[in-house]
Design a protein around this nucleic acid. Structure first.
Lengths: 234, 234
DNA sequence: ATAGTTTTGGGACATATGTCCTTCCCAACA
DNA sequence: TGTTGGGAAGGACATATGTCCCAAAACTAT
């Protein structure tokens, strides 16, 4: 992690994502732009709350490790998104670990200044409400989906979200096998079992296994299997 | 459902739960007090959003039915709690069904008036933020817990919450068997399997089956089994 | 190129859980 | 008193999923 002293870049992000309207002018001097490399941790579960972060570049992985050591990936995030919002509102420690998946830029604001200058700032409150309720929706459907459907269905939904959403045109319909462990942790199963399910889908002609990646062969079939629900959609 | 025309009772609830400070004075004429009997539905998933409700008396069951007809109970609520908050912020249809478990009193405010008079009312925004982040926490731990632990562990946690929380002294350590179906739906499993797990716990001496109810025999043991996590705590 | 190391896929087995259906018990009622 | 209906518990079986471990493949450093 390193700080980027580049007021112009900061300004650029503020405009791109229309951040200024949600912040109080008094806060502007206290914004810091940080950069994280692939694999770096932004925060770890249990860390005391410090900053509110705005993700403005790159991709984040949010996950949680149980006392027994099992990892559960909760989501991936892309700009514009917020980290530390729930913690800011409740004043509690971080519940999850946040890792940079690519090079990541984040705007950080220390809670001290937020409390001091913006605790009554309506646009910020509304922005937080909006962001948090959206997160709640995702979490809520995720809970039902995980409890109600088997891994096969969840993976079908995952495949559709990841392979067709916004990826490189080259990777349309493909998932690199190096992402399978992440995928397993995301849908809450073991790598072993995910492999089993892929075999099954393969047998049914929905996907095909190649060296290094999985290819979607029948998008419609997968969508049907997933009940047309794209639970992992960003 | 029927309206209760009783300004004094309304006033009483407003004071007991300190509701006035979070509302705008302009809203006060538009508050309505409703009463629901045991088993009545306050709203059904898919209903268009209409009111924000404040639960001031009784107990609610929040649940969700999947397209396949499986029921998943998301939570039980007691005063003071809010129904329709997420829907108000996002302007979306109800995601869950809400049923009165006992006689229930709710204060309802039509979203029209909220939008008109309180959309910038800081205390309300803060109140909503607080309530919603709390809900998010619960949902979040619930998701991890369900995905990471087997039914046995979840039921142990459930038993501890339900039997010792605030129940009638007579029922301390006991769970009526008529609640088992609800319990199964709450922890996301089948009634059949829950029975199996109860047998197992019984064999281990943690609980005991009697006619009409289950009795906790070893609270400490259950707590250990549940990893000391009370996920279903109100 | 070769030997060691990591990655990847899958076999074998145990456990967790769902579904269907039967049996038992008891209360209400003719 | 016998009948019946419904709820509660559990048997039998199939499926879903986890754990442990191994073997082939790919990759790396010498």
């Amino acid at each position: 992690m390193r700080e980027i002293h580049d007021p112009e870049l900061l300004q650029h992000y503020m405009e791109t994502f229309e951040i200024k309207p949600i912040l109080n002018d008094a806060l502007l001097p206290y914004l810091t732009l940080y950069s994280y490399d692939h694999g770096e941790l932004i925060c770890t579960q249990g860390d005391p709350y410090n900053h509110l972060y705005l993700l403005v570049k790159g991709k984040l992985k949010i996950f949680n490790t149980s006392p027994e050591g099992r990892t559960l990936i909760l989501s991936f995030k892309t700009p514009l998104d917020v980290v530390g919002d729930i913690e800011y509102v409740q004043g509690t420690d971080f519940i999850n670990t946040v890792e940079a998946v690519s090079e990541v830029h984040m705007i950080a604001i220390h809670h001290r200044w937020l409390k001091k200058f913006a605790s009554d700032h309506t646009p910020l409150l509304k922005f937080l409400l909006n962001v948090i309720t959206k997160k709640f929706y995702v979490k809520s459907s995720s809970l039902s989906f995980n409890l109600l459907y088997p891994v096969e269905v969840r993976f079908a939904s995952y495949l559709l979200s990841v392979c067709f959403d916004e990826g490189d045109a080259l990777y349309r319909g493909q998932l690199s096998t190096s992402h399978l462990i992440d995928a397993a942790n995301l849908i809450g199963t073991s790598y072993r079992h995910l492999n089993r399910v892929i075999q099954q889908l393969s047998k049914e002609g929905l996907v095909e296994r190649h060296k290094g990646f999985i290819e979607v062969k029948n998008r419609e079939g997968l969508s049907e299997l997933a009940n047309h629900r794209n639970i992992y959609e960003k």
